[in-house]
């Protein structure tokens, strides 16, 4: 069950896994996620399903190894089994022929953009991609995005690759140049999604964001992932994860995402990489 069949590092601290999960692979749709628990003492945490291969029975997961649980996941090897994997969860993306869709990924937020971009493309939309990252080495999935989109703009915060600037700078130029935009999808760090929503709001451009609050069960039972949308409390796990970016209270979301930051720091210190068991296939990482 849940065997890791392939493992690849695609950027600093960023990993791409193929995991055997035939039931999820057969059923998952764009925008859905899985909840994982790496081992007995681990947390339950959500990851978007980037793609699936129903014939092979595998799903593709991309994650950044920044917290205790994701670092433990990164320490696993092909052949290892993820202890628990449940899904596909969340509402699938609303797919419609909008016209021109701009799909924006910030950092590893590009990973959840890919399946949605593909589905919007398949629905007959024209796609423009914006792939933003801190620097050249952090740009991920550019080739995949290019294969889906009619046009792709890459930007980096430090200017080491593509445009020098943020994804919002690229989007602003497009809007100011009078380009037709019917739909914007933005996924990445919460401040980035908020900035995109603020940019499109005055222009009335339909803007969808995919939220990543703290979750436990992922099926509506705890309410930990609650977010305020248009003044109403919603559960990201069953009402989302995608919402109208113009209606989300990002301030409250960002606060709630930081709820355990102190405790997480404590846990992280206890599980430094050297204390995480690495198997032989990872010894080549020691030199990094």
């Amino acid at each position: 069950m849940n065997e890791i069949v392939a493992r690849e590092q695609i950027a600093p601290e960023t990993w791409r896994y193929l995991v055997r999960a035939p039931e999820i692979a057969a059923r998952r749709r764009a925008g859905q996620f899985v909840v994982l628990r790496v081992y007995e003492k681990g947390e339950r945490f959500p990851l978007t399903v980037v793609s699936s291969d129903p014939a092979e029975g595998t799903i593709e997961l991309i994650f950044q190894a920044v917290g205790t649980s994701t670092r433990m996941l990164a320490a696993m090897c092909p052949g290892d089994e993820i202890m628990d994997l449940a899904g596909p969860l969340g509402r699938p993306t609303h797919i419609e022929r909008f016209g021109v869709c701009v799909v924006i990924g910030g950092g590893y937020g590009m990973a959840p953009v890919i399946p949605i971009a593909q589905a919007q493309r398949d629905a007959g939309n024209t796609l423009i991609g914006i792939d933003g990252a801190r620097s050249r080495e952090h740009v991920i999935l550019e080739d995949r995005l290019r294969a889906i989109c009619d046009r792709v703009e890459v930007c980096t915060d430090d200017g080491s690759y593509g445009h020098h600037g943020f994804v919002t700078d690229v989007l602003r130029e497009m809007i100011e140049a009078g380009e037709r935009i019917d739909y914007v999808l933005a996924i990445g760090p919460t401040p980035m999604m908020r900035a995109v929503a603020e940019l499109t709001r005055p222009h009335g451009i339909h803007t969808v964001v995919s939220l990543n609050p703290i979750m436990v069960d992922g099926t509506g039972m705890c309410g930990g992932c609650r977010v305020e949308v248009a003044g109403e409390t919603k559960f990201a796990c069953i009402d989302g994860p995608e919402f109208d970016g113009h209606l989300v209270d990002f301030e409250s979301l960002m606060r709630r995402q930081r709820m355990y930051s102190e405790m997480e720091g404590e846990a992280r210190r206890m599980f430094e990489p050297h204390s995480t068991p690495l198997c032989a296939c990872q010894e080549d990482r020691d030199g990094e």
């Binding site: 947390e43 205790t68 436990v216 705890c222 309410g223 930990g224 846990a267 599980f271």
Partner: peptide, 26 residues
Amino acid sequence: YSANEFLTRVNLMRADRFPEYHTPVH
């Protein structure tokens, strides 16, 4: 918290033994 979340964190996820178990509870 909802009672569900508070209790789930402790009962199912063992937040009472954080950080040995990695799920926190406030």
